[in-house]
């Protein structure tokens, strides 16, 4: 190291704004996961059944979302919609792009999970007089959720990491707040090190929460 002096105190003064950014990051993560699960569950069922237009839509969605960079997806939503006159905020654009990405990955996760639940479980439900929706809701999904639980949680961590791309379209989530703070206090390394630490802690927090939730729902692993 050359004669660089760390000035943590100057960077620490911006901790409150970083924490505000962290709240935005968590909000985006949770919202994008709610949207992601909400849209991907029906699509995964259609894809699993494997016929009709919606199965094709789900397949195309998976292909596009998983084979292009998230950065490109963020740009496509923010600048692409903007080019057609839909000027949405960077918050909405990040949320849309991350949700789009989440849905692509979650469809595959749920479809993989569906394949592990034996088909006769669904058929027996139907033959007991349940409707298709009831058979899915009461028989297939409870078993499925346990199988895909950790994959979904991993996807949630990925979603959190991906929200940092909001920085590039001017959103003040954790990375954006750090960028803003370092342009004022000139302590780039210290500020971004703090942001990295906060991301690390949030990831750990999410994992801990997931473990607790799993233990609450299904007992010890």
């Amino acid at each position: 190291m050359s004669d660089y002096h760390f000035h943590w105190v100057m960077a620490l003064r911006d901790l409150p704004s970083l924490l505000q950014g962290a709240v935005v990051t968590l909000q985006l993560t949770i919202l994008s996961m709610i949207i992601g699960v909400g849209v991907s569950v029906p699509l995964a069922v259609m894809r699993w059944q494997g016929r009709g237009v919606w199965s094709g839509v789900a397949g195309a969605w998976v292909d596009v979302a998983r084979n292009t960079p998230v950065l490109l997806q963020v740009y496509a939503v923010y600048f692409g919609l903007g080019a057609y006159g839909f000027n949405i905020s960077s918050y909405a654009a990040t949320l849309l792009a991350i949700s789009f990405n989440n849905i692509g990955y979650l469809i595959e996760i749920f479809r993989g999970g569906l394949a592990t639940v034996p088909r006769y479980q669904y058929i027996s439900g139907r033959s007991l007089g349940m409707s298709a929706t009831q058979a899915y809701a009461y028989i297939v999904w409870p078993q499925l959720l346990r199988i895909v639980f950790y994959s979904v949680m991993t996807q949630m961590i990925w979603a959190m990491l991906n929200t940092s791309l909001g920085l590039l379209i001017g959103l003040r989530e954790l990375a954006g707040a750090a960028e803003q703070a370092q342009s004022v206090n000139y302590r780039t390394l210290e500020t971004f090190a703090m942001a990295a630490l906060l991301y690390y802690l949030m990831a750990k927090l999410l994992i801990l929460g997931a473990e607790l939730l799993y233990a609450r729902l299904y007992g010890r692993r």
């Binding site: 190291m1 961590i157 780039t188 971004f192 090190a193």
Partner: peptide, 21 residues
């Protein structure tokens, strides 16, 4: 750390560290 810090932050930190050093 490598898996729970966003790549963009890793890049920025590495870039800054390299400039400083």
């Amino acid at each position: 750390v490598v898996r729970s810090v966003p790549m963009i932050i890793q890049l920025i930190i590495l870039d800054t560290c390299l400039s400083i050093s």
